[in-house]
Nucleic acid binder design. Structure first.
Lengths: 295, 295
DNA sequence: CCATTTGTCTGACTCTAGTCAGATAATCGG
DNA sequence: CCGATTATCTGACTAGAGTCAGACAAATGG
C-alpha cells in the first residue's frame, strides 16, 4: 500500500481513538487550552506571557483570559517582571503543580486503559511500532537552520561531535582549543554552519568551510545518538552540499577516520569517491570528494 | 521503555505534527464535523441517517442539522427511504463528490508533504510501523457485544465462517440449512452469541451452546482475515469462556478440523486438552475441553 | 520630555461542536 | 385499529476556542 494511504488510514484510526487522550483534561474540569497552557508553564518553569504566546501561538487577549482563569483557580501566580514592568511573569503555584501531577496521572491511566486489552506481546509490538513511527515522524518534520558557528547551540553541537570522536577513536581525540579564526571559516562568504532542530533540541549539525578555489570542505558533521536510523545524516549531507553550491563551490571534500564506518558508508552511498590525502589532519585516514556543480 | 510512555510520547509528537491533517477541511470552508460526515457518506455510499449516527456517534438532532447544512450547500441529497418512510436516505450529489475529491486531494497533498523529506526506505519503514500500530490500536479498541444469533450481522459473520471452512477443508464444507432451532441453542438460557465490532464492521464472532449438564460448547468462532495477528482469537475465546461460566457451565468443549492448525494452536495455548470424540460432527477430527469453573 | 512602540488587558464578537427536551410522523405488535 | 416504538427534526441551550479593535501603562528613541 502506498505510504500516504497508510498514513491517512492511521490518522483516521488515531484521531478517533487516541485523540481521546486529549479529553483527559476535560475530566479534571480544565478545558484543553488551559491544560495545554498549564503543561507549558510547568515544562519551561516561570515564563513571561510573551514567551507563552510565542510557544503556543495564542492571541494575546485570549492568553490573558486563559491566564486569569488559571489564576482564579489558584493554579498559577502572575506577577510583573521586575526588569520590565510591562511584562508579566507566570509561575505554577503548589496547587498548579498538584494539578499537573493529576493530569499526568490521568493521561497515564488512559494510556494504560487503551493498552489493557492487548497481550504483553502485542503491547511490545505496538510500542515498537509507535517508537519507530515517532522517530520517523519527528525526523520528517525536523527543521534545518543556518546559525553562527559561535552561537551557544552550535558550540554545544560541536562539543557533542568532539566527544563522540573521543569515544570512538582508539587513542581518543583532542580537538585543541576552538579558536575564533577556526569558527570564522564556517561563516559567509565561503562557509556556513547548519543545525537540525526538533522541538528546539539540536539533532544534528554540520559545516562547510572554503578550501581553495571552488572547493568547499564539509566539517563537523554529527547526528545525535537518538536520531540514528532516521536518515538525518544523509539529509544533512545533502543540505551542506546544496549550501556549498550556493556559496560558489563546485567540489566538496571531506576527511574521516577509518573507525567511522557508518560515516564512510554514508559518503560512498551518496556519490563520494576516495581521493588522496589533501590535508595534514592527524586523525584523518580517508579523504573523499564529490562534484556538486551539476545539481 | 514502558508502553504507556511510548504511547504518550507518540501522542504528543503526533498531535503536534499530523493532527494538522485535520485542518485540511477548514481550508475548504467546511467545518470538521461536516467534512467527516461527508467522508462517511462518500465512503459507505447512500446511507440512512441512523447508520451515520451509529458510525460517527452523533446526537440525532446534531446530525439532522449537519445534514441540512450539507444539503443547503447542495453537497448531499436527502430523501425518505421507500422501505420505511421514517428513515431518510442520504447520498452524495455531483457537487458532493467533487468536494470529497478535493478534500481527498488536499489530505493526500498534506500527507505527501509530511513524507516528502523521508527517503523511500524510511517511508516504507514508517508505513510498516503505522500499519502495525493501526491494527493494534484498532484491536485494542474493539467492542464485544452479545447479539441474537438470528440478527443480520450474526448471520453474515457465520456466513464468513462457513465460507472459510469451505475454502480450507479439502473436500469443502456444507453447513446445511441454518435452522431456527440451530440458532436458538445460542440464546439464553444456556447459550450466547458474541460479535466483535470495529467501526460497525464485524471483526470476529463466536457462540456458546449448552451440551448437557454444566457443559457448554464453543461454536462458530471466526476472526476476519484482516484481523489476523491482533490477538482477537484469544480474546474472543476468553470472552466466550467467561460468558459460558456466567451461563452456569463449568466445562467448555469444542471440536475442530485438523486443517485448522492455527485454531488448534490457539486452543492448546489457552489451556484446552484433547479429549475423545463427544459428538458426531462429520467434519470434526479433534475434540477439546477446558475447565472454566475456577476463574 | 514627548511621540512611538511594546506588552498586556478588556469588551464585544464569531464559529464549532455539541447536549437535552420535546414534537411529529411512520411503523410495528398485538 | 390503537397504543407503543422508532426515526428524525426543531428549539433552546452551553462551553470551548478563538478573533479583532481598542484601551492603557510602561519602556524607548531621538
Amino acid at each position: 500500500m502506498e505510504s500516504t494511504a497508510v498514513l491517512r488510514r492511521f490518522n483516521r484510526t488515531y484521531t478517533q481513538r487516541i485523540g481521546a487522550l486529549d479529553e483527559t483534561f476535560l475530566g479534571l474540569g480544565l478545558p484543553l487550552a488551559s491544560a495545554r497552557l498549564l503543561f507549558e508553564i510547568g515544562y519551561v518553569g516561570p515564563v513571561t506571557a510573551q514567551v507563552l504566546r510565542a510557544r503556543l501561538g495564542l492571541d494575546s487577549g485570549y492568553l490573558s483570559r486563559l491566564l486569569r482563569g488559571l489564576e482564579e483557580r489558584a493554579l498559577v501566580a502572575v506577577a510583573p517582571d521586575p526588569g520590565d514592568r510591562r511584562r508579566r511573569v507566570v509561575s505554577l503555584t503548589r496547587a498548579g503543580g498538584r494539578m499537573l501531577a493529576r493530569l499526568d496521572q490521568r493521561s497515564e491511566e488512559l494510556a494504560l486503559g487503551l493498552l489493557e486489552p492487548l497481550s504483553e506481546r502485542q503491547r511490545g509490538r505496538l510500542a515498537e511500532a509507535l517508537a519507530t513511527a515517532d522517530l520517523l515522524v519527528r525526523a520528517a518534520t525536523i527543521a534545518f537552520e543556518v546559525v553562527d558557528p559561535a552561537s551557544p547551540d552550535a558550540r554545544t553541537a560541536m562539543g557533542h561531535y568532539f566527544d563522540e570522536l573521543d569515544r570512538r577513536f582508539d587513542g581518543g581525540f583532542d580537538p585543541g582549543p576552538l579558536t575564533d579564526e577556526d569558527l570564522a571559516t564556517m561563516r559567509p562568504p565561503g562557509g556556513t554552519f547548519v543545525l537540525a532542530r526538533s522541538d528546539g533540541e539540536v539533532a544534528a549539525c554540520g559545516g562547510v568551510q572554503p578550501l581553495g578555489a571552488g572547493i568547499g570542505e564539509i566539517k563537523r558533521m554529527w547526528v545525535h545518538d537518538g536520531w540514528r536510523g532516521a536518515g538525518l545524516g544523509a539529509r544533512m549531507l545533502r543540505r551542506l552540499e546544496d549550501d556549498a553550491t550556493a556559496l560558489g563551490h563546485t567540489v566538496v571534500r571531506l576527511d574521516t577516520n577509518g573507525t567511522l564506518t557508518d560515516a564512510i558508508a554514508l559518503y560512498e552511498r551518496n556519490g563520494y569517491r576516495s581521493i588522496e590525502r589533501y590535508n595534514d589532519n592527524p586523525y584523518a585516514e580517508r579523504w573523499f570528494e564529490k562534484d556538486v556543480r551539476s545539481r
